[in-house]
């Protein structure tokens, strides 16, 4: 029991330690490297993209990969490389915002449900059941259809649907921790319930949610792309990987590069975040080696 407490202990410091990449495991190094690279690409897009991602250049349309256009051009003559680079901005933003709000909402609701127990717990968990009863994408599409297509609708739908996983995860851990010894000790110091929950219980169980949120980014980026592909998310002509794949599918037999390179971009961003999640889990001692 005490060994358990020790191995779990101090995730914050080890989390900071984990960011010192020199000492980190391979998964973590690779994952952090890929994610960092994407972040740099997104940040420096105007400087590293060779062409305007939106301006048409019809004389050069549907050209295969070449020195001038390493990833080729689409049916409007737009450089695929530049569009992939600019797309990183939108897709990273989708990943981060699409995870942040579910994380915050789910953690709050889950910890309140776990700590309060009784009817509060029952009501909140039935709410979770209701959300889980619908297939994820169907529910997302329904909400976006009501709100109207666009990135903001996607964020709102994500917040309304995505929080349930975090709520269940956090609730389970709060249930364990609320009867733990250091919580009894905190009660013996006369602290109120909210202080115990947010200052003592949550910091001890948030590590699992952070790791989960990293792998959740993958899911969010994929569903964001899927929804853009269906025409309900990011609208053309904005460069977004899902939109690009949707636009390129008419030319799939004649110009494979239009869909392939944004597809690979999605794969590599997803790979980066899942490696990061794996590495963090290992680093924080949440998984047996």
């Amino acid at each position: 029991m005490s060994d358990f407490a020790l191995s779990r202990g101090n995730w914050l410091e080890r989390g900071i330690g984990a960011l010192r990449l020199g000492r980190a495991n391979l998964n973590l190094r690779l994952g952090a490297g890929i994610v960092l690279a994407w972040a740099l690409v997104a940040l420096l897009a105007p400087w590293i993209a060779p062409f305007d991602p939106i301006a048409h250049n019809l004389p050069d349309k549907l050209q295969g990969p070449s020195l001038a256009y390493p990833f080729g051009t689409d049916n409007f003559g737009r450089d695929i490389l530049s569009r992939v680079i600019y797309g990183a901005r939108i897709d990273l933003q989708m990943g981060v915002i699409g995870v942040l709000f579910p994380f915050l909402i789910g953690t709050t609701i889950g910890s309140i449900a776990g700590y309060a127990g009784g009817w509060v717990d029952s009501v909140l968990m039935r709410l979770v059941d209701v959300v889980l009863a619908f297939p994820f994408l169907v529910l997302m599409l329904a909400i976006i259809a009501i709100l109207g297509p666009g990135l903001y609708s996607f964020y709102i739908a994500m917040a309304l649907v995505g929080w349930v996983s975090y709520a269940r995860l956090v609730r389970a851990q709060v249930l364990v921790l609320k009867t733990s010894d250091f919580v009894t000790a905190a009660r013996s110091l006369g602290f109120g319930r909210l202080r115990i929950l947010f200052r003592h219980i949550l910091p001890n169980c948030i590590a699992g949610s952070i790791v989960f949120s990293m792998s959740d980014v993958v899911l969010v980026v994929l569903s964001g792309s899927a929804i853009s592909y269906l025409g309900l998310g990011v609208q053309p002509p904005t460069a977004e990987w899902g939109v690009m794949i949707a636009e390129g599918q008419n030319f799939i037999t004649t110009a494979w590069w239009i869909t392939t390179f944004p597809g690979l971009a999605i794969v590599f961003m997803a790979l980066g975040f899942s490696l990061l999640a794996d590495g963090l889990a290992e680093r924080l001692g949440l998984r047996q080696r």
Binding site: A5, G9, S180, F182, A186, R199, H200, P203, N204
Partner: peptide, 9 residues
Amino acid sequence: PNSHLDPVM
């Protein structure tokens, strides 16, 4: 005392 102190504070 191992388990009655908050491990992350």
